[in-house]
């Protein structure tokens, strides 16, 4: 399995185009933020010191959540390609079990998701600081690292389940572009959660990736938010948090951190199980 794991990593990173395309959604969101989304949201907020840094942290947190799922999806492309080009036959004829072959794809996709998220974190932090924000505190950094791992785990399980249905490259690339287009909405980045109709809000609140975004926002924005809302009434901050998807409310009650963590972990376990079922069902 180690050999396959390393091979999958090499195949993914060697193909510069596929790396680029798995980051395309992230780049588009970031460009839109730089061009106008950022200014638009900041103009809607009270003119307090540190607003810019707070919103920069907000967008980077969202981008981290998006990077994780789109790169995991891109990494799973190797598996679909191998099936389409029959490369899988070469593995099947070797004394390695099918379970280990699948595990090799999953492990490498997880690791690719983590590597790309870390890269995104570095770029994001450099961006925040270059625009006058502050570095993450060591505690916040550790929490973010933990969240990156958890989010990659959850996304690997999710994508693995989805990919277990695909045999053709066409189906896969369609699904990838669909994900790339929708993920910005599903995580409440193109349009903050608070602006969406309630039905859409509900979809966002059950989408595991938005919980990764939520937890990342809470962690990365804690310090900048404290600075911005230092002298303001608590209700003002709460309204902002609810509007921008820093805290989700369900049935009038704020969802706890534990709930979001449980959703991420639950998704990982359930979808991992489902994908194993689906992969074994496909076997002749």
């Amino acid at each position: 399995m180690k050999a396959l794991f390393i091979r999958n990593l090499k195949v993914y990173f060697r193909d510069k185009a596929s790396v680029f395309f798995s980051l395309l959604a992230v780049l588009i969101i970031f460009m839109l933020y730089l061009l106008f989304l950022g200014d638009m949201w900041i103009s809607n907020l009270p003119d307090l010191p540190g607003v810019r840094a707070m919103m920069d942290s907000w967008i980077i947190a969202g981008l981290l959540a998006v990077t994780s799922i789109t790169t995991v999806m891109g990494a799973f492309g190797t598996m679909v390609d191998d099936r389409a080009h029959k490369i899988i036959k070469d593995f099947d004829a070797a004394p390695i079990s099918k379970g280990k072959i699948v595990a090799g794809y999953e492990l490498s996709s997880f690791v690719i998701g983590v590597i790309m998220s870390l890269l995104m974190l570095v770029i994001g932090e450099l961006y925040i600081v270059s625009r006058g924000g502050a570095w993450l505190t060591p505690t916040a950094l550790l929490t973010v690292l933990g969240l990156i791992l958890l989010s990659a785990l959850c996304n690997t399980a999710l994508v693995s389940f989805v990919v277990s249905f695909f045999r053709s490259q066409n189906a896969f690339s369609t699904a990838s572009s669909l994900l790339g287009t929708l993920v910005g909405f599903m995580t409440g980045i193109y349009m903050p959660v608070g602006m969406m109709p309630s039905a859409v809000q509900l979809i966002i609140k059950v989408f595991p990736v938005s919980h990764a975004a939520l937890l990342l926002r809470q962690t990365m924005m804690a310090a900048p938010m404290a600075q911005v809302y230092a002298g303001a009434p608590a209700a003002m901050q709460q309204a902002f948090e609810q509007e921008m998807g820093v805290v989700f409310h369900l049935g009038g009650q704020p969802m706890s951190v534990a709930t979001s963590l449980a959703i991420l972990m639950g998704t990982a376990v359930v979808f991992y199980g489902l994908s194993i079922l689906n992969f074994s069902r496909k076997r002749r």
Binding site: A3, L4, I6, R7, K10, F91, A94, P95
Partner: peptide
């Protein structure tokens, strides 16, 4: 991948 990388990864199987 290069021929060597290919053969090496397959050897791992």
């Amino acid at each position: 991948l290069s021929v060597e990388e290919n053969i090496r990864t397959r050897a791992g199987l």
